[in-house]
Design a protein around this nucleic acid. Sequence first.
DNA 1: GCGCATACCAGATTTTTGTCTGGTATGCAA
DNA 2: TTGCATACCAGACAAAAATCTGGTATGCGC
Lengths: 204, 204
Amino acid sequence: MRIFMTPFTPPGETREKVYRFVRRRILEELPPTVREVQEAFRFRAVQTAREHLERLVAEGRLVKAHGKSRGYRLPREPGTLFVPLLGRVQAGGLRAAIEECEGYLPVQSRGSEEMFGLRVQGESMTGAGILPGDIVVVRQQAEAASGDIVVALVGDEATIKRLRLRGNGIELHPENPAFTPIVPRAEECTVLGKVVEVRRYLEG
Amino acid sequence: MRIFMTPFTPPGETREKVYRFVRRRILEELPPTVREVQEAFRFRAVQTAREHLERLVAEGRLVKAHGKSRGYRLPREPGTLFVPLLGRVQAGGLRAAIEECEGYLPVQSRGSEEMFGLRVQGESMTGAGILPGDIVVVRQQAEAASGDIVVALVGDEATIKRLRLRGNGIELHPENPAFTPIVPRAEECTVLGKVVEVRRYLEG
DNA sequence: GCGCATACCAGATTTTTGTCTGGTATGCAA
DNA sequence: TTGCATACCAGACAAAAATCTGGTATGCGC
């Protein structure tokens, strides 16, 4: 007569915990093996862990790569990618600036667009809640709509302003009464991309 | 006589590519196996991939968990963790709010502190560049220093204000002249945590 | 009782994966 | 020339991990 450890486990409760465990591990960059799940929950059999995992897959809460180690993943990728954080961008040197970036930022993104982070200098956009020292996350694109906040290369330095289309030309508007709009000639201004996110770190 | 495919590969060039490949894979959440590296570079022998990887470890550019599958990691963890994004927090229900969160935010963090994200309502902190709809990232802590921006539970709703210590008591200061400071009694106010980051998503 | 579901366990097989031993080719410096 | 480094290859072995087969206990509806 064998002893079976089958404490009163309400249906689904253990599975819920397994799901949370696996999700956390995946988000922390290393999905667990079936045996790691087994050990984490003190199952006596690998199969028990496997059954929970396969059930989660059947329910659509996880997806897996059959036969591969650590093959369980979250469905619909959370799509977190790391974009380079640039200190400043000088004329023409976006490529160079990306090579010499200060670090990387985790960013949520659906596509695999080319993006970068840029540290804000100056007070010209405080009216839009963008303060010196903030970081803007920029999606690289040469075109933008009127009203978008963009990063543009004017002269030999990148600047953050609100874009206004005026007939054929463009204007770059600060969001601070102490500054005046820039009306660059087309050939001396390049739109590097659109600001899609603003971040401010209050410590560290 | 065997034929060896040894094209002119400048020293370190292949290794650099291997490093980039592995780093990308790690950041995308599933570190490669040695054989996956082998296949990605069309090496005829696993050992070739292994030598590059071990070399990268020796150089300190990667670290590994010996004997574990997919055991290569980036040194000094980028320490990205995912924190729950809460819509609103009502009296006492921080735990409940975390259970029913709207989603997860990738956040850079050194420790494994308890954190959460909270969507900003109202204009009381616009002077600090915190606008309605912004997201604040909060580290849970019951104590905070004078001058910190905190999330506090006053009455039955969470609010974001700048904390001021006044003798024995506390004051919660808005950063907008149209609002007046709150001077709560100690028993009707709980500091949930300190705002460590502000985010604004400009699209989506 | 019966059938059926969930929840779990035991032991084995098969595949994947990490590791190891010993090799070839090329360039460089002593 | 020798020695030594890098860069690569071949074939194996052993550990780790996924998978499979067949079981026990408990509760629920009929």
